[in-house]
């Protein structure tokens, strides 16, 4: 067997798996978009009618909102996961296993049950809501009791609004914030795990080297630890961002009408309107709006790297010239 044949033999099972459960379904979904829908909820004849219908003025906003919220969730997850992963990697190995187990513990409870629990926690009669409302009232109180000039400045900065809070518009439940909060809660382990795995392999003596060269703790963390585990961060971003884009249960249960994301729209089109091609087109649209920027970013990075190398080459050439004179 040649090396090439050997490679094919080894990768064949995973390629087969990918083809069967990813590539072919994706192509089927794409194909559906070029069909009309039949009144009985099935897929109709080949036609471009679906793509013509999809020009709904709401969709770009919803796609954008989905991406924005997924981005927020990803940023929060990474920001929280970095110190977590760092701390766990620095622990004694005995404690590491315990903490890593504890992070995985929520998965023993059904996902929908956990989201439902959040619904209770964030309920308007719950303590979180009470605390939040008290905070809003305190801010208003601050504004009312501070000298005029300071109060106006704080009002402008949004720290202490002059308007008293309105209970009807100050609920946590059924808001974007609730969706972000619970998404972060749900996806955080998926961010911690790859970051922790990378941090465990990280050579912490590099941190000492950075400190030795004059960097403070924070500087050493950001300019040595973070780049050192960037592979883990990239996986963490993908592990969080992709499920966040496809999320449907959380906005459905906690976002109410204030946070309808693309997942909910797809659900509505597919199940309520029984228009499978339309749902497929939405899914395609969403996938495209995520993948196109990623591919563009990868291309840009390659371009930058090439440019960077040229700069370095020029610098090296100058150095050599300087060294010989």
């Amino acid at each position: 067997m040649t090396k090439r044949q050997h490679e094919i033999a080894i990768t064949a099972p995973s390629l087969l798996w990918l083809a069967l459960f990813f590539a072919i379904p994706a192509l089927v979904v794409l194909a559906f978009t070029f069909h009309g829908h039949s009144p009985d909820g099935g897929v109709g004849e080949w036609s471009l009618s679906t793509w013509r219908e999809i020009v709904d003025p709401d969709y770009p906003a919803i796609v954008w909102k989905t991406i924005r919220i997924s981005f927020e969730v990803t940023v929060w997850c990474i920001l929280l996961a970095l110190p977590c992963g760092y701390a766990i990697a620095k622990m004694r190995s005995k404690w590491r296993a315990v903490v890593a187990g504890a992070i995985m513990l929520p998965f023993w409870t059904n996902f929908v049950v956990r989201v439902f629990a959040w619904k209770t926690i964030l309920h308007p009669d719950g303590w979180v809501q009470h605390c939040y409302f008290s905070l809003l009232e305190a801010r208003h109180w601050l504004s009312a009791h501070l000298p005029g000039l300071v109060a106006r400045a704080l009002d402008g900065a949004g720290i202490a609004p002059a308007e008293p809070p309105d209970p009807a518009f100050s609920t946590i439940l059924d808001s974007e914030a609730a969706v972000v909060l619970v998404s972060v809660y749900t996806l955080l382990p998926f961010a911690i795990m790859p970051i922790y795995t990378a941090a465990e392999k990280f050579d912490f003596s590099l941190m000492e080297a950075a400190r030795d060269l004059g960097a403070g703790n924070l500087r050493a963390f950001t300019s040595v630890f973070v780049p050192g585990i960037r592979q883990g961060i990239v996986s963490a971003v993908l592990m969080v961002f992709i499920p966040a884009v496809g999320s449907y249960v959380i906005p459905q249960m906690l976002g109410g009408t204030n946070c309808v994301l693309i997942g909910n729209k797809i659900f509505m089109r597919a199940i309520q309107n029984r228009n499978i091609p339309h749902a497929a087109a939405l899914a395609t649209l969403m996938a495209a709006s995520v993948f196109v920027p990623i591919i563009a970013a990868a291309w840009w990075r390659r371009y930058q790297a090439k440019r960077g190398r040229r700069i370095v080459e020029v610098r090296a050439a100058r150095l050599m010239a300087g060294g010989t004179k």
Binding site: D203, S205, L206, A209, A210, D212, G228, R230
Partner: peptide, 14 residues
């Protein structure tokens, strides 16, 4: 104002 040359060099790989 002291600097160290570490036993394993500890160069930043990135």
């Amino acid at each position: 104002s002291v600097n160290t040359v570490f036993q394993n060099y500890a160069l930043f790989p990135h």
